[in-house]
């Protein structure tokens, strides 16, 4: 199926700013789905609130655009309701890890077969550029006019510690790698987390004097490196890209089916 057929063109133009990374992620995601040859009817996209969450409205799947931070909780209901569906959850960093942090760690702990794609642009874009839990110490935002004294955390490490069975990181610059990782994440049976560094030139870029979208993407190229690379050993400040973990552990819906089988025998 052509990529175009995965898009609800009649709802365009989209609302993203020129140069925003979310369109690139949507493109990468659709290419991954196309490579997998999946039918549109077997995919459910569930999202919360924020610029990135609007992806769900523009794609021609079963789409559920929910409330801020709770996408994974809704997605858990959809997946458990009909486990044969592929459930993909695009989220922003604030949506996934501030208001939605609890759902994030618990979905990971349950290892339910959902693909969480966290677009980390280190800012609340839709509300106008406030700092997020991923902005990091020393950054500027509309709610951190002097400087941000909140420390950030590492999404990949958090996801691994919480028990996610597939954890990866890539950037909006590395589109080929992004497509490949998302494809693997969708195929993976269990909770998968893909963190994608994306640019928000309108707020994070402007407030922190990082230049335009192209310059921000250059930064992704220059300041990231493949996991375990020589460059990383020489410069620990580089951010690693690639698949951190991919392991087979019992998946929640399959485990529940065993509970049903057991309970039915007993009754």
């Amino acid at each position: 199926m052509a990529i175009k057929d995965y898009i609800r063109e009649r709802f365009f133009p989209h609302l993203w700013c020129p140069g925003c990374g979310h369109g690139i992620v949507m493109n990468g995601m659709l290419h991954a789905i196309e490579k997998l040859g999946m039918s549109r009817n077997e995919i459910v996209m569930v999202s919360g609130i924020g610029c990135s969450s609007r992806i769900s409205c523009y794609v021609d799947f079963h789409t559920l655009h929910t409330i801020h931070g709770r996408a994974l909780a809704f997605a858990t209901g959809v997946k458990l309701g009909l486990p044969e569906l592929n459930v993909i959850v695009p989220m922003g960093d604030g949506d996934a890890l501030a208001i939605g942090g609890n759902h994030f760690i618990h979905a990971a702990r349950r290892n339910i077969d959902i693909t969480a794609i966290v677009m980390n642009n280190r800012v609340y874009g839709m509300t106008g550029g406030q700092f997020s839990p991923l902005s990091g110490y020393g950054t500027k935002a509309t709610t951190a006019p002097y400087k941000n004294i909140d420390h950030d955390f590492d999404i990949a490490q958090l996801a691994m510690a919480a028990g996610a069975s597939f954890v990866a990181r890539t950037t909006a610059y590395h589109v080929k790698q992004m497509t490949d990782i998302i494809r693997k994440a969708i195929l993976h049976e269990g909770f998968s987390v893909v963190e994608i560094l994306t640019q928000c030139p309108t707020y994070f870029g402007r407030k922190n004097k990082l230049g335009d979208a192209a310059e921000m993407m250059e930064w992704f190229k220059d300041f990231t490196t493949p996991i375990g690379s020589k460059a990383k050993k020489e410069n620990d400040d580089l951010i690693e890209r690639g698949i951190f973990v991919q392991k087979e552990i019992p998946e929640y819906c399959e485990e529940y089916d065993k509970i049903i089988e057991h309970a039915m025998k007993g009754s």
Binding site: R70, A73, F74, T76, G77, L80, M264, G266, S267
Partner: peptide, 25 residues
């Protein structure tokens, strides 16, 4: 589970409400 249905204990009250809405769909 005895009738093939599903029960899930969610991480909080909010998540429980969200999960039933997802399943209803």
């Amino acid at each position: 589970p005895r009738k093939g249905g599903k029960f899930i204990q969610m991480e909080d009250e909010i998540a429980s409400m969200c999960a039933i809405i997802g399943a209803s769909l």
